[in-house]
């Protein structure tokens, strides 16, 4: 279970550069997720709970 198994041969320098690369792809995915999340949450909160009328007690 060694770390590098069958990857393209990267030099130490190239590897180090990648290790320092910021996770832009992750950020993009999470940003999209956050937008969908908020839309869906507001949708259910106001579109279902509030739309069904008052609730308390």
């Amino acid at each position: 279970m060694a770390e590098q198994s069958s990857q393209p041969q990267l030099s130490e320098e190239e590897q180090q550069k990648i290790l320092e690369t910021p996770p832009k792809g992750t950020f993009a995915i999470m940003l999209i997720y956050a937008v969908i999340f908020m839309a869906a949450w507001f949708g259910i909160y106001f579109g279902t709970l509030i739309a069904r009328g008052p609730v308390s007690g």
Partner: peptide, 9 residues
């Protein structure tokens, strides 16, 4: 502001 709560009593 709107009194939106689950029932507690």
């Amino acid at each position: 502001m709107w009194g939106v709560h689950p029932p507690s009593n």
